[in-house]
Simulated assay, not measured.
Amino acid sequence: MTSERRILLWMCLLVGVNQLGFGAMVPSLPLYASSFGVSASAIGLAVAAYGLARFLAVLPGGQLADRWGRRPVLAIGGLISAVGSFWCAEAHSFVEFILARIVAGAGAGIILTIGQIVLADISPPDRRGRNIATYQAAFLLGFGVGPFPGGLLAGAYGLAAPFLMTGVASLLTTAIAWFLVSETRSARTSAVASGKAAEIPFIRQMLGLLSHRGFLLVSLISLMNAVVRTGGLFALIPLLATTTLGLSVTEIGFAMMVSGVFGFVAAYPAGWLADRIGRKAVIVPSTVLTGMSMVLFCYAPSYAWFIAASIVWSVAASISSSAPAAYVVDTAPAGMNASAMTAFRMTADAGYVIGPPGLGLLADLTSSTVAIISASVVLVSLGAIFAVTSPEKRSSAQR
């Protein structure tokens, strides 16, 4: 087995385990937050606090990955996430729960950022889409399967129990990072390119990348995907499904698990297409499909339609998982993988910060349906602008 494939294999195991734990608490999160007697906008704050911590952890995580190496920083992220998750399960007030979510989010931000940096390090342009798609397939499978055991745990042992599962998964993530993942900091960057990149301050590298029109637009698409996912799927849709369809946490978790299987199947073909026909040809349709899935969630008349909406969303998320990251790495100059993925992750995670409280507040003022559809319209509009104005980036950046 080549070094590239071996690292990819362990990274897939790492992110699969990590997202299995994360997915476990998704169905119960809004219900657990509401058990403290707070409003929809406050429930959004519980999701946003996690996203804010992820956002703030991205920059120091990327810098440390360049200074200390990818492997130790991955392990540190797992430990921080575990501490926060266990604390969530033991929180005695909403304020304490928010603080615990901040700690867990910081660890998650480090893990997700360094994971994408590792993939950028090991992937040549002609296999970049497929490598990232394979990694994202493991991500989606873990995230898709997690809600079902999480729902069962919540139903049997209470709404706090899935957070314990998340903490255990974070500890396993730490072990995989430390004992199985090889260091990739110099995997595909020449000493000359690395030296030239090091002469430019890290933050200036990020700002320079964000001034590129295509890089900025694909990052904004990821931002709005995060708004729709966290503000809609994580915060409002479980409540909407509970009140309008009478679904239990276990039923919502089962629907997400079924959809995760479909997303897993769609991931690799999407990466192959991104390598063969270009990144834009995958990014634009998946953006439209995400908007359609939100409409299905809002107007689902039955549990079967809710499952169908979950499948459409999961397939759209799977299709869009590899091409944007591949586009970002294609755009980045040699030696700037860490700064490129850091800028991309920070922009995307900003959606995690503004989405839940923003859509929660809009839902309080209007309705959950209006909030979710409004965010979807903005997302699809950005996809259309990207389709018309951004240059194609397929295998053009040689490492």
Rank of each mutant, 00 (worst) to 15 (best):
G16L: 15
Q19V: 06
G23R: 09
L29P: 04
L31G: 10
A33H: 06
V38R: 05
Q63A: 14
L64I: 06
G69F: 12
R70Y: 06
P72G: 08
I76S: 05
L79D: 03
L79I: 14
S81E: 10
A82L: 10
I102G: 06
A104E: 05
G105C: 12
A106F: 04
P125V: 13
R127C: 07
A133I: 09
G150T: 10
A156D: 08
A161G: 08
F163R: 02
L164G: 08
M165E: 06
S170R: 03
T173E: 08
F179I: 07
E183K: 13
A193R: 02
A197T: 05
A197C: 11
G208L: 02
H212K: 12
R213S: 11
G231F: 05
A235Q: 07
I237K: 08
P238Q: 13
A241N: 05
V249W: 01
A255T: 01
G260F: 00
V261D: 06
V261R: 05
V261P: 08
F262P: 04
F264E: 00
A281Y: 07
P285D: 12
P285K: 07
V288C: 12
S293M: 08
Y299S: 11
A300G: 04
W305C: 03
W305P: 00
F306D: 00
A316Y: 00
S322R: 03
S322D: 04
A326S: 14
V329R: 01
G335H: 11
A340I: 01
T342Q: 11
T342S: 11
T342L: 03
V353E: 06
V353F: 15
P357W: 11
L362F: 09
L362G: 00
L365P: 07
L365F: 12
T366Y: 14
S368F: 08
S374M: 10
A375F: 03
I385F: 14
V388Q: 11
P391C: 09
A397M: 15
